[in-house]
Nucleic acid binder design. Structure first.
Length: 494
RNA sequence: GCCGCCUUAGCUCAGUUGGUUAGAGCGCUGGUUUGUGGAACCAGAGGUCCUUGGUUCGAGACCAAGAGGCGGUACCA
């Protein structure tokens, strides 16, 4: 074998798994989407907030690093005083900490919006990373259904702001209290003992569209073995309970008023269930008054949101393609965000219940969906490239760039090294439409030469010999310095 | 976590039953052409064949473990 030579150490250029570089197009699209959401939230009187990426581990809650699994779930490290700090895994837990810390100073309801990276230490999958951007709006300190209605309307407005037309999205609303009501009469108590079983039932319902009724039935009962031979423990509901749950999840229609009537009879005498229906009625009244029809917001009893911490209304924002299914309804692409009421998060800090409700979406997931729907307008024009023909005229080149900037045209001076050939190649690779050439000849004559690279490329197709290519100088014109900006504009427009 | 597939140049991939100096296309850099992006031609750079250990006279190839990637499933605050 070859002996080790004294090679200089070179680190391998690589990223930790699950962490992505995001560049140009993606970044622009993300920024635009976040700004669109922010402007909606801002318009409705929400305030921006930014919290740090690190929080004390105990402030974030349940996912503490322990000795068995020190590196799963959250990224955590010990500060120099040995306190555990964790990278935030969402924006809601830090909000709860912020509200608790500033409780007396905040006007309530406190409504804030925030976007930022969150971190999860787990195996990355398709479209799933260990660092990703979330965009949240939450309303803390308002118990009534009006606050939930507001979040639902905001979610719908964000869909519009993202460039979607009505009919291309739907906000689907459910209420945890309804399922609680159903389960009560099926012998699952609404207490701490029933919490684990309720969570299993929620997870099972969540898989309705993927596994179908039969798969969910198995998960609600004894359990289910999948194709790879992996066994998932079921929720162990009895036959009547399974029937009741499945009946409930399919009870809703596209019409809110109809669904409310159906649910009222389904809840029977369950106090909690009827309270849930009452909340949906209140929300419906507000939506109707503002003109949010069934097409934008519907009630859907199959929506669960996997999380255990929701306590009341829950909802998902779903994207729909233009393609219709057999019943003539737009096909679902899937959920791009969601939210709901969570009344117990701040109480961890203060001992008293603080009502809260919010909406959150994953920025890149939303973008991927928009891309699939061709609803993305990500066009940023490439810059005009000003060639540095003559180094002694550098100041003039920046002056030219400045004149374009003043007109809102993206432009840059070539600041690298190399002759004009290289500079033209650079302009080409930047996909620039216009290259600006000004050597001493033009300078002395008070002129600027402009070249339309797009037109030039078309002309090149017909040219065989290099001689001809060089001498013809296609799609280029020399104009007086006084008119050159409007000439550039004309070229970009043409 | 569990199951399956994969890993050779920047990219896409060849590489014979284990045999000397590991190749191609595209891309990249330079030149023909230092006042002009294409095309063409010429030249060049770029490789710990994922890692470690083993089998062998000899391993890119065979064996083992690990890492990384992809897909499915579970989980998802």
């Amino acid at each position: 074998m070859a002996k080790k030579k004294n090679k200089p150490f070179r680190p391998k250029a690589r990223r930790p798994r699950g962490f992505e570089d995001r560049s140009s197009d993606v970044l622009r699209a993300e920024t635009r989407l976040i700004q669109a959401a922010f402007s909606v939230y801002d318009m409705h009187g929400f305030e921006p907030l930014q919290t740090p990426a690190f929080e004390f581990a105990d402030a974030l809650g349940k996912f503490l690093p322990d000795e068995d699994r020190p590196n799963t779930g959250v990224f955590a490290l010990q500060d120099d005083d040995e306190q555990w700090m964790s990278l935030r895994y969402d924006l809601t837990a830090p909000l709860a900490r912020f509200v608790a810390e500033n409780y007396d100073a905040l006007a309530k309801p406190y409504r804030r919006y925030q976007a930022g990276s969150v971190y999860r230490n787990e195996k990355p999958g398709p479209g799933r990373f260990r660092e990703f951007t979330q965009c949240d709006a939450d309303s803390v300190g308002a118990a009534g259904a009006a606050a939930d209605a507001e979040m639902i309307m905001l979610a719908a407005e964000v869909m519009r702001a993202a460039g979607l037309k009505d009919g291309q999205y739907a906000i689907r609303v459910n209420n945890r209290k309804l399922l609680d009501g159903i389960l009560e009469s099926s012998g699952v108590p609404n207490t701490a003992e029933g919490a684990e079983q309720r969570l299993q039932i929620l997870r099972a319902i969540d898989k309705l569209d993927r596994l179908g009724a039969a798969g969910v039935e198995a998960l609600l009962g004894e359990g289910r073995e999948d194709e790879s031979g992996d066994y998932t423990e079921g929720a162990k509901l009895n036959a009547a309970g399974i029937k009741a749950v499945l009946g409930f999840t399919t009870a809703s229609t596209d019409n809110r008023a109809d669904t409310i009537r159906t649910l009222e009879s389904l809840m029977g005498t369950s106090e909690r269930g009827l309270a849930g229906v009452q909340e949906l009625i209140e929300i419906d009244t507000i939506l109707n008054a503002v003109g949010f029809g069934n097409e934008r917001v519907s009630y859907d009893t199959s929506i669960v949101r996997g999380l255990g911490y929701y306590t009341g209304p829950v909802f998902e924002a779903e994207l729909l393609t233009e393609i219709k299914d057999r019943k003539g309804r737009p096909v679902r692409i899937g959920s791009v965000g969601g939210g709901g009421r969570y009344d117990d998060l701040v109480s961890r800090f203060r001992g008293q219940t603080v009502p809260a409700t919010g909406f959150s979406f994953g920025v890149s997931r939303f973008l991927t969906a928009l891309e699939r729907m061709d609803a993305l307008d990500s066009s940023v024009k490439p810059p005009v490239v000003i060639c540095a023909f003559d180094r002694s005229l550098m100041g003039e080149y920046f002056k030219l760039a400045g004149e374009l900037h003043a007109e809102g045209i993206r432009a840059e001076v070539f600041v690298g090294s190399g002759n004009v050939t290289k500079q033209m190649k650079y302009a080409d690779r930047r996909h620039a439409q216009v290259a600006v050439l000004m050597g001493s000849d033009e300078m002395d004559a008070g002129q600027v030469t402009l070249k339309d690279l797009y037109e030039g490329a078309k002309a090149a197709a017909a040219i065989e010999s290099n001689e001809e290519w060089k001498s013809s100088r296609p799609a280029q014109e020399t104009v007086a310095r006084g008119q050159w900006v409007s000439a550039v504009k004309a070229m970009l427009a043409g």
